[in-house]
């Protein structure tokens, strides 16, 4: 569904939201080392735009909430694709339905406000980096030329039926391989995934005018104050949680 509410955008740029909610885990399916989980939140919780993230915390989990981009968002409901490799993510994947999840956000600058609007994009996603790109594709079909998604294990396909994903253990093909085949001059790239994948993309496409990478660092406060997520850019230190998470590839030369 395409939404063009400029209200959400304006508000996101006026200041951080402190909309918080005691969410409840509504559904969770686990396959291939990932979980697809839905968390019910208050209807007043501001729905994240593609590329924005929320902070999640379980009562029994790590003390500092963790940042997650969303796979889909609508009033009262957030959906996530979680890689089950951290304390919180594993706990979320195993949690019983109805488990309370503390949700805060959304934070970060929506992808659409960081990118040029005069080209279409190949969305390159690896692992849970696929989630915000699917969110983007659903909201902006007119900006989406193609996808280049990849995961290691085939189980993930069961969690995302109908999504075109390369599975490394099947044919050895990666998101990166697909990007090489599907990108051509005149198209932009939106990439989100593990750092080695982003490095590979940066090495090949950084000089192209519309290559963007969605960076991941451990987010602290989420609202731009603590500098825990700051990275070096050509315009000085920038916050992944505020100016980011999306950066023009040319802005982060250290990634190459």
């Amino acid at each position: 569904m395409k939404r063009d509410s400029s209200e959400g955008l304006t508000a996101a740029h006026q200041g951080p939201f402190f909309s918080a909610s005691s969410g409840r885990l509504e559904s969770s399916a686990v396959a291939g080392g990932y979980a697809r989980a839905t968390i019910g939140v208050d209807h007043s919780f501001v729905a994240p735009r593609p590329g924005q993230f929320v902070l999640l915390r379980l009562r029994e989990g790590p003390a500092l909430p963790r940042a997650f981009s969303v796979l889909a968002a609508e009033a009262g409901r957030l959906e996530f694709l979680l890689k089950l490799d951290g304390a919180l993510r594993e706990a979320l994947g195993r949690a019983a339905m109805g488990t309370e999840v503390v949700v805060r956000g959304p934070y970060g600058t929506p992808y659409e406000t960081r990118i040029g609007r005069d080209c279409r994009y190949v969305l390159a996603g690896g692992g849970s980096g696929i989630a915000p790109l699917l969110h983007f594709a659903a909201a902006y079909p007119e900006l989406t030329e193609d996808v280049a998604f990849g995961v290691r294990e085939r189980g993930v396909r069961d969690l995302l039926p109908g999504v075109d994903i390369a599975v490394e253990e099947e044919g050895g093909e990666t998101a990166d391989d697909r990007l090489r085949k599907r990108w051509k001059h005149g198209l932009g790239i939106l990439a989100c995934g593990p750092e080695p994948m982003l490095r590979g993309i940066a090495q090949r496409y950084a000089a192209e005018p519309d290559t963007y990478v969605s960076l991941e660092t451990r987010i602290g406060c989420g609202f731009g104050a603590c500098q825990g997520c700051s990275v070096e850019t050509r315009s000085g230190m920038q916050r992944v949680c505020r100016e980011g998470p999306l950066f023009a590839c040319s802005e982060v030369p250290w990634l190459r």
Binding site: A63, L64, R218, I219, G220, G228, S230, E232
Partner: peptide, 23 residues
């Protein structure tokens, strides 16, 4: 001051290790 490179936050039981470096 630019502060320290990433990572600047590392989880620890019941807290976090920070290494912002006075940015």
């Amino acid at each position: 001051r630019r502060g320290n490179p990433q990572p600047r936050l590392v989880d620890a039981p019941c807290g976090v290790l920070n290494s912002i470096g006075l940015q």
